[in-house]
């Protein structure tokens, strides 16, 4: 029974990490920006919703608005930071440092405005728990899982079956050719940043409901998500998502056989071994 509980816990936690991995991978594979500040967007999403709830908005409206605000925030980052750096031919290292700096600014601004304390959503609407025998799942956990699966399915569908998706893939593969063929890569980057930031907002918001809001909680989840992005195959939506879920399940189930102190370390050792044998990742980008 413990194994089943840990398995379910791993899948539910992993689906949230999966969305972070997928969105981070989308940005990296398309813009080639190692967008560390994505952790900041993850964090700020829950604070958007928290503020909107305080203003008296219903949960559903606040959540939808929070996701849209995250998208707008991502577009702002692209237009105000990455695009000017690209125009000045900044190296990838410079862009990475700028992104790290932006993350520090976001985290510290949140701490200044909302205090560094762990906050709780000022709403009990999603406070329910679903019990089935000894299995207990909270409403935010369940909603996040459902939304994560639907979002990943939608992203795969759009990527493979729509002109817009093909345009993103074309620019990702060859931005130079994208300019010549009038695909307007700069505009594509803005779209991708907007969509990916909205997607990471889903995890940020529901984790905020479930685990509370903290200014500095995005870094750890981004680290795991980055590993999943690379191991899943950069640019592969399904790969990143599946590896994130797999890593989370592995971390949970490993508690059955090893001490909790070694759980994270063992998981990452397995990741290194996996990458040694399959450096291209689990799946190839399509």
């Amino acid at each position: 029974m413990l194994a089943l509980q840990l398995l379910i816990n791993g899948i539910l936690t992993g689906s949230g990490v999966g969305l972070v991995a997928v969105s981070f991978g989308m940005i990296y594979s398309c813009t080639r920006v190692f967008h560390v500040a994505h952790a900041g967007t993850y964090t700020i999403s829950a604070y958007f919703v928290w503020s909107l709830l305080l203003l008296g908005l219903p949960d559903v409206v606040a959540i939808v608005a929070g996701i849209l605000l995250c998208g707008a925030f991502g577009i702002f980052i692209q237009v105000a930071l990455y695009e000017p750096l690209a125009k000045r031919n900044a190296s990838q290292l410079v862009v990475l440092i700028a992104s790290l700096g932006l993350l520090a600014v976001i985290q510290n601004l949140i701490a200044m405005i909302f205090t560094p304390n762990i906050l709780r959503m000022p709403s009990t609407m999603l406070g329910g728990v679903l019990n089935a025998g000894s299995i207990a799942v909270t409403t935010p956990q369940l909603l996040l899982f459902i939304l994560a699966v639907l979002t990943v399915a939608a992203l795969i569908f759009v990527s493979r079956n729509t002109v817009f998706g093909k345009r993103i893939r074309a620019v990702s593969n060859n931005p130079g050719l994208g300019v010549i063929t009038m695909l307007r890569p700069r505009l594509v980057y803005i779209y991708v940043m907007g969509i990916a930031s909205a997607v990471v907002g889903i995890t940020g918001i529901f984790n905020g409901y479930d685990l509370g809001l903290q200014p500095y909680n995005g870094t750890l989840i981004l680290l795991t998500a980055t590993v999943a992005t690379i191991a899943g195959g950069i640019g592969s939506i399904a790969g990143g998502f599946l590896v994130a879920v797999g890593l989370s399940v592995l971390q949970n189930l490993s508690l059955l056989v090893i001490d909790g102190r070694w759980s994270v370390a063992i998981t990452f050792v397995l990741f290194i071994v996996f990458m040694l044998f399959r450096p291209q990742g689990l799946m190839r980008a399509r």
């Binding site: 791993g10 762990i118 685990l211 509370g212 750890l220 508690l255």
Partner: peptide, 10 residues
């Protein structure tokens, strides 16, 4: 860390 579920389950 605020997700204690795995540790609590064990």
């Amino acid at each position: 860390e605020t997700n204690f579920r795995a540790a609590l389950l064990k």
